[in-house]
Design a protein around this nucleic acid. Sequence first.
DNA 1: CATGAATGAGCTTTCATTCAT
DNA 2: AATGAATGAAAGCTCATTCAT
Lengths: 201, 201, 201, 201
Amino acid sequence: MVNDKKKPSDKHRRIIEAALKVFAKNGFYNSKVSEIARAAGVADGTIYLYFQNKDDILISLFEEEMQGVLDQVNLAVGQETDPAKKLERFALAHLSLVEQNQEMAEIIQVEVRQSSKFMRGYANIKFQEYLNIISGIIKEGQALGVFRADIKPGVAKRAFFGALDEMSRYWVLSTARKYSITAAAQEISRFFLEGIQERKP
Amino acid sequence: MVNDKKKPSDKHRRIIEAALKVFAKNGFYNSKVSEIARAAGVADGTIYLYFQNKDDILISLFEEEMQGVLDQVNLAVGQETDPAKKLERFALAHLSLVEQNQEMAEIIQVEVRQSSKFMRGYANIKFQEYLNIISGIIKEGQALGVFRADIKPGVAKRAFFGALDEMSRYWVLSTARKYSITAAAQEISRFFLEGIQERKP
Amino acid sequence: MVNDKKKPSDKHRRIIEAALKVFAKNGFYNSKVSEIARAAGVADGTIYLYFQNKDDILISLFEEEMQGVLDQVNLAVGQETDPAKKLERFALAHLSLVEQNQEMAEIIQVEVRQSSKFMRGYANIKFQEYLNIISGIIKEGQALGVFRADIKPGVAKRAFFGALDEMSRYWVLSTARKYSITAAAQEISRFFLEGIQERKP
Amino acid sequence: MVNDKKKPSDKHRRIIEAALKVFAKNGFYNSKVSEIARAAGVADGTIYLYFQNKDDILISLFEEEMQGVLDQVNLAVGQETDPAKKLERFALAHLSLVEQNQEMAEIIQVEVRQSSKFMRGYANIKFQEYLNIISGIIKEGQALGVFRADIKPGVAKRAFFGALDEMSRYWVLSTARKYSITAAAQEISRFFLEGIQERKP
DNA sequence: CATGAATGAGCTTTCATTCAT
DNA sequence: AATGAATGAAAGCTCATTCAT
């Protein structure tokens, strides 16, 4: 009864979700607005009551989904106190989200990257925020003396994210899944935390 | 008299180079064939004497440039014998090539990734070969006992490449260059080889 | 108020009629879709809401007009019982239709003949039906014993149609009309029915 | 030895013959000049040393081949004195030529008819001459009193030619040949000469 | 709010023709 | 005479966007 009537832009949601599927399947430039409309069960013109243009669908889609990703990853990371554990949690959360929402993962990896270059005035703040979760953890670790002080967080965040992302790409594109998410997250975190060299005992 | 013979397919080269610039500037889908033709100093129709269609320009561009990359990186890596040094060389060569040919780097990162998904029957063998240089080095290191035996080369190659690639993206997109290539290559290799954790003495 | 409902696909009709004029004037291959659009008073793109492509315009045009022709000729022929009279009626109806709709006649004679050879999978059933009106009459006459039993209807239908058609071509192409439709229909029917030889008394 | 060196425009001939095949296969508008060149074993540009343009190839092809047809048919007809026999000879010669050179027959029926409408200032005199062989025979027959005096030769020539031509079309397009040439020529001539009506004895 | 028919700018690609060699 | 690489105008078709209903 409290929230009985709240369907704020049901159409908006349906369009976003339709666009998610369509963009993931065909790519942004090969997707037609009319196909999104059909998938969403609305008329072509209706799209333009909720979005300014085709670009805007992609950007809105990204922004909205990315906010959810940020929230979930922050939540997961917040459950640990040890920076090393936090990084492992980050990896696990990231790969889990990729697994749960492959379509979104494909779009972020391919379309947004591609499009953010060509869409006027789109700064992609959300992605910066996401990377800064990593650099935040690293700085924390450095402050605690558990991570090397000479590490540059701005470089390390990219290296760590890049490793995860390239792994995800392989994940998303290949049909056969060889490893468990948990195992993969641990493995990549370990590369990053301990390196691959054999320790001389 | 020494060099009497005409350069074979001078036009082919000019079109590839024009496409490189145009695709890097506008992205594949926002580039017009006529713009490539203009940039190459040929007529629109001439493009189609050398390439089957617009897609083919991108694929040819990638294949040809990528071969050069493979050759140069293999050469660089071959100058070392220590696997750890080889990885560092790989990183250095990769980042140097990105630096020297930013347009190509952008196209590989954005367009080819994007397009290879949607261009029917394009397997992107060259990229596989590139990644396998890394896994080759890792296997070598494992055989010599200098890299941990439990490392999965198929995962590690992606992690290492991903780290470099994400770094390159930042490089290419940001105008200000903060670090030297050499320093960055060493730093990323070190993450990978030694990890970021402080060693307890 | 009686006729409140909008004419369904008014545009379809207008495009067909515009195409009729344009194809007759320039021939199929020399006609531009944009010219048809202009003649129909619609935008270029509108054509493609009603027809799949340029070929489809020609085929649709033919099918629709030909159905009208079939109906009218069948009606005319049905008004006679004597097979000889029926053939004369056929000739008269055919030539009348040619006269009334010269543009359509030209298109059928030239474009459809030409195109049906090159348009994949176009069987031209309607034309078969048209010829079979003639062979039907002939068989009827043979059954009644008024036409020679050794006549092959499959050959005779082509001979009769060919005679009418060649006459029509002359008609359509020449500006000056020398004979009346009725006289011409009678004359050609008579060749066919009685031959041209002088009877020895 | 007498005529040992006479190869006047060997290329000209080769191009005509290549065009014959190519036009028959694809139709005039779907044929490429380069395909004719390839079929003739000459370079694209060479075509333009012998013909003004693509239209000119078709017209020349028609004119040259048609002259041969005229000569042969005139020869055949000239071997008879009886006008009725002459018409039968005409039919036989016509159908034989169609049979012997189906490619040419297709081109005359479809392409030349189509094109002569749209090629500026092409009067198609040769075709007139061909039809006039028939009207000549009819006038001769009328003068001798063996054909009815009220027959209009201008109409009859078209009716006779049309009957043969429609038959030929069927011939050329259908794969299965049901009747012998001789039988068909006789049959069609008989329609024309005697009609199809049963004679009351 | 919602519709979807209509628009028309803009793209890729083709191919007859030319001309330097 | 012969070549064939190069040209560039031209055309079919698509699809994001609009707007009358």
